[in-house]
Amino acid sequence: MVRFEDVWLRYRHADRAPEAEALRGISFEIEDGGFRWLTGPSGAGKTSLLKLIYLAEHPARGRIEILGSRAARITRREAALLRRRIGVVYQDFRLLPQLDAYDNVALPMRLARRSEAQVRADVDEILRWVGLAHRLHARPDELSGGEQQRIAIARAVVARPKLLVADEPTGNLDNEQAERLMLLITALNKLGTTVIVATHNTALVERYPFPRLSLEHGRLVHDG
């Protein structure tokens, strides 16, 4: 379950300019195994909200509960272990440049100290799913934008997270790849993974009519 209660987020500026309020009084709840689109214009606060969910920011105010843990009350170690249960597709991919595609995808499993046999089986499977089984030795700078995005998606889902957070996951994909990705995400969702996908792709939202959270100027203007 993901629950926000009156959550505010402010960014501090290094130059002592007034703090910018990225999110204002956000409250919503996503049940276990739920799916939400997160929509809104650029600058509405979608990425900020996702950062709070995957514990990359602390709220200025309010209460956040992620997969049964109160974000404000967990230790650093517990936060790290909680992050391992959250798959994240970053808008800018964040692939490690020194690792090839295989090792990038394997990273979450290795951090979770899974056996190499299990890593091999799961990474091979997910690379086939995203259609990149033939590119496993390529480093990120040898991959196209779309291929990098598919590797980032594979890395987010390879450890079968309980919560999947994706920031514009189809931004660099053609329609066929976007469709294939949505099949993967909905399959994970059916297996019990809670999913939150931020997107500008209205066609995709219409084709997969899941409930929607809409943000404008840091406020939640639609939930349902």
Partner: peptide, 8 residues
């Protein structure tokens, strides 16, 4: 990135 993926 590694921190975000759950590295202790």
């Amino acid at each position: 990135t590694v921190h975000g993926l759950g590295a202790l």
